[in-house]
Design a binder for these strands. Structure first.
Length: 179
DNA sequence: TCGAAGATTCTA
DNA sequence: AGAATCTTCGAA
């Protein structure tokens, strides 16, 4: 299965009250303090896994939550994992995409920079614009515009009207693929 | 050991 | 708008 990442949120450490790492190292958030480029998978609300990719050097907490992807290959397999769900809703949320890609805690801490069961890689992509807004589903840290998404992409999660929404800016970066 | 909250989703 | 559902963490 292959998808293009179209929506992410950034989380940091003691300077970010919305982050799992805000109060320091715990067993759950340990990957955020570890090597960059690893998966940080956590379970929440009794039902859902969420996938992050760690971003900062060892000892400094940081991760990017993958909130939505655009399905590219293996769509029938994704539908099998999320039966009776229309294509547009297959992977447009952090808990939805982990289910559609069968991502769970067994992939926690996996190296996502190398070819393996779950990894990211650069791919061709035309020009696109990046929208940004406040992060979704958080109680603190609402002042930061740390949610980023491909502007106008229909596979972005349905809450683009979150407060703090800004019109597209930032540049043309190649999006990446998840497998 | 216990209670409350949670980087969500689905249904009514 | 509210329930579901259970892990995690901090406080007691």
């Amino acid at each position: 299965m292959v998808g293009k990442i179209v929506e992410v949120e950034a989380y940091r450490g003691s300077d970010d009250p919305a982050s799992h790492a805000f109060r320091g190292l715990t067993p759950r958030n340990a990957p955020m303090f570890g090597e960059p480029g690893r998966a940080y998978v956590y379970f929440t609300y009794g039902n859902h896994y969420c996938l992050n990719i760690t971003t900062r050097e060892s000892g400094i907490p940081g991760a990017v939550l993958i909130r939505a992807i655009e399905p590219i290959e293996g769509i029938s397999a994704m539908v099998r994992l999320r039966p009776k769900v229309p294509k547009l809703a297959l992977t447009n949320g952090p808990g939805k995409l982990t289910k559609a890609l069968r991502i769970d805690k067994s992939l926690n801490e996996i190296d996502m920079t190398k070819h393996g069961p779950l990894y990211v890689t650069k791919a061709e992509a035309g020009d696109f614009e990046v929208g940004r807004s406040t992060r979704i589903g958080i109680a603190a840290g609402k002042d930061r515009l740390w949610r980023f998404y491909v502007f106008g992409n229909p596979y972005v999660s349905q809450r683009q009207t979150a407060e703090g929404l800004q019109r597209p800016r930032l540049g043309r970066k190649e999006p990446e693929r998840v497998i």
